[in-house]
């Protein structure tokens, strides 16, 4: 096995062109997997450690809602830095930014608390210091802590290759456990996240078997926009660890729209969740428990009343 650390995008793409090359981001998942399957390892690990172009938080000037692909910004460098006072339509999060860096960023804390809470619950301090947002996404685990918030937020991924960049909705990027739409020679360069308005309540809850170093048994990210009289205008909900990928439930979102954010409405929605969700048994929890809790977590939204 070989390991290289490109220092610019051109070098990165060159390294990724080698047969058997594989990106090493934070290493917190990949190196654990390589330890248990040492002989299935790639020929070359391409480390992102020394690539500042893939790090940082910036305003995403290129955000156009509904636009699936976007060219430009070939070097993937972040645009000018931004402060918490400005109103941004979207943020561009460099894929190699660590969880700790994101968590410490005032814009993430102020504007994307649903993501900040997921980051705060992820792994442990050293794992957050090493692991990256891009790594969490590309690992594509149904238990990936940042995935439910990013999906609820409607994030897009920016995929860079020698030939150019493309954008995909995160939902289209995640294909199944451990599977993504990343093509050979491509790297996940950034995640572009539309910033919800101030009328949107953001909520994240992770149920693990313990309070740190925990893999999610069930998690829920919720964005709820309420209007006059506390009525729900729009709800975006995404559950982790209850299916092969992060689970959305349009029926529940539809059922909540127009209702007052109340325990009654949430209880009804929870029963829809329980009838629709199809979790599995594993060593951490049974399918029955996951089904019940997936519904129950909605009830917590009553605290937002």
């Amino acid at each position: 096995m070989n390991v290289v650390f490109p220092r610019n995008m051109a070098a990165l793409f060159k390294a990724l062109d080698e047969p058997g090359a594989r990106v090493l981001a934070g290493g917190t998942d990949l190196l654990v997997r390589l330890r248990s399957h040492p002989d299935s390892g790639p020929a070359t690990l391409v480390g992102l450690d020394r690539l500042p172009a893939l790090r940082g938080v910036a305003e995403d000037s290129g955000w156009e809602p509904g636009l699936g692909t976007k060219d430009g910004r070939g070097d993937g460098s972040p645009s000018e830095s931004v402060g918490p006072g400005t109103l941004h339509r979207a943020l561009r999060l460099g894929a190699a930014t660590t969880h700790a860096e994101l968590l410490a960023h005032p814009l993430i804390r102020a504007r994307l608390p649903v993501l900040a809470q997921a980051l705060a619950d992820l792994g442990s301090p050293p794992i957050r210091n090493m692991g990256t947002l891009g790594g969490n996404i590309c690992t594509a685990s149904p238990a990936g802590d940042t995935l439910p918030p990013l999906l609820a937020l409607g994030a897009e991924v920016e995929l860079a290759a020698k030939t150019g960049t493309r954008r995909l909705p995160l939902a289209s990027f995640l294909l199944g456990p451990g599977r993504t739409a990343l093509k050979p020679g491509e790297v996940l360069a950034a995640v572009c996240v539309p910033v919800p308005g101030v009328d949107v309540r953001q909520h994240f809850e992770k149920v693990g078997r313990r309070d740190a170093l925990a893999v999610a048994v069930v998690s829920l990210a919720a964005l709820v926009r309420t209007g006059h009289g506390g009525k729900i205008v729009e709800a975006h909900l995404a559950w982790g660890s209850v299916g092969p990928t992060v689970w959305r439930c349009p029926e529940v979102e539809a059922a909540l729209a127009g209702r007052k954010l109340s325990l009654t409405a949430l209880t009804e929605a929870a029963s829809i969740v329980r009838s629709q969700v199809q979790p599995i048994d594993d060593v951490r929890a049974s399918a029955d428990y996951r089904r019940e809790v997936a519904g129950n977590l909605l009830l917590r939204l009553a605290m937002l009343e």
Binding site: G27, T28, L31, G47, P125, P126, M130
Partner: peptide, 15 residues
């Protein structure tokens, strides 16, 4: 200065 785990770092990353 950042708290990391040396079992999940390659020696090469220390350079």
């Amino acid at each position: 200065g950042v708290h990391k785990l040396s079992c999940l770092l390659l020696a090469a990353q220390l350079a």
